[in-house]
Each structure stands twice: as structure tokens, then as C-alpha cells.
Amino acid sequence: MSRMLTVFRRELASYFNTPLAYVFIIIFLFLTGIFTFYLGNFFGRGQADLKPFFSFHPWLYLFLVPAIAMRLWAEERKSGSIELLLTLPISLADAVLGKFLAAWAFTAIALACTFPMWLTVAYLGDPDHGVIVAGYLGSLLMAGGYLAIGSAVSSLSKNQVIAFVITVVVCFLFTVSGAPIVLDAFTAWAPQRVVDIVASLSFLTHFEAITNGVLDLRDIFYFVSMIGFWLFANLVLVDARKAA
């Protein structure tokens, strides 16, 4: 545990050692603002909630989260520091978990920086704070899902750009797997049960269920198991690919 925290602390500090953290947070806040107020018609709707704000998160994360995740292992492999990290008396699971949690904590910090949005609706009207809390929780869980995918993919390549592009594609497929764009590839040949399973893997469906204020354990379980699965894949891939 303490070794995992050591990795966690180093990783989290490294975001703030470089301009990455500040650039990311500023752009994230800028884009959430633009999307919410212009595309989401925040004021025109006449409703005191954060629906327009949260509804753009899957699409923002689709590009921003892979940008954080791409460096997690690709950079270690490129610079050779992975050899240093994995010959310290730290288990591979601690290293994978510490890195993932640091990246997740960083997105949580970025997400927390959007609190003025919450203050705004609270000032303008009388929003359902429970729904907003659920929205933040759902958003954070979804970011974790994207991050876990990105972390696993980034262990496949030394090249961060490749890691980024593949992560975006995989995340996109999971985001829209409930939509015809993905399902049409299965309906032609797969039995209905398979199609249903694919559809049920959609980030979007589960995220929207949570942001509607319905905290269904199944949605939370979905994201948690998604994170667990991809982190396990991450572990296996790092072990298999570290020397390549």
C-alpha cells in the first residue's frame, strides 16, 4: 500500500512539474464552459440544473482523457525509466494502480475546478443538488473508465501518438456501443443476445442513467468492473511488453 502511494505521489507531482496539468485544466474548463453555455443553451433552457454541462462530458473526455493516459506507460517505455520502476521493490500491481489512481486523481482535480458552474445554478435557481452530485460522480467514474482503457493501450506502444489515437478509437467504440454505428456491425450476423451485450457496454447509456439522478448500483458496478478489467489487461500487457 505504501509503495503504491509512493508511485501515486510521484506520478501526481509529475503532472504539475510540467505545463501539462495547467494546459489541461485550462482547456478543460474553457471547453466545458463553451459547450455548456453555447451548444448546451444553458441560460435559454430556463432550468436550474447542470444537464447541458454533463451531457458534453463523454465527448470532451473522448479526446482529453486519452491525452492524459497516453503517457502513462508509453513514456516510461520510451525513456527506459520503466526498467528503473519495475526493478524497485514495488509489485507490478502497485505500479499499475498507483499510476492509474494518480491520473484519475488529476482528472478529479480538473473536474473539481468546474465548481463555479454548480455555484452558478445554485445562485440562479433552486437545483436538485443530489442530481448534481450524482452527475459529478458519474462523470468521474466515466473518466476512470476512459483512463483505464488509455492506460492499458499506452502499455502497447512506445509512441504516445499511437497510444493516443488507438485509445480515442477504443473509447469511441465503448462510448457509442449502444448506437447503430456499432450495433449494425453485429446485428447482421450475431444473435440478439450478443447485440444486447454489446449495447449494454455503452458508456453513454450508463453515464446518462447516473446523471439523471438515478444512482443504480448496476451503473456504478459497470464502470467499476470496466476499470478493473482494463487495469488487469494493463498489468498483463505491461508484463508482456516491457522488454520489447
Binding site: 510521484r10 509529475s14 512539474n17 510540467t18 525513456s79 527506459g80 525509466s81 526498467e83 528503473l84 526493478t87 524497485l88 521493490p89 514495488i90 509489485s91
Partner: peptide, 20 residues
């Protein structure tokens, strides 16, 4: 872990975390 704890290792090319 016990074996690694007993080792001090300088890998080829002396990699480190450049931003630290």
C-alpha cells in the same frame, strides 16, 4: 520483492524521470 530490495541497479543508459 525481497530479491529486488537487496539490489541497487543502474540500468543501461541511466534512465530517470526527466521532469524531476
Amino acid at each position: 520483492l525481497a530479491a529486488k530490495a537487496a539490489i541497487g541497479y543502474l540500468p543501461e543508459g541511466a534512465p530517470a524521470y526527466g521532469d524531476m
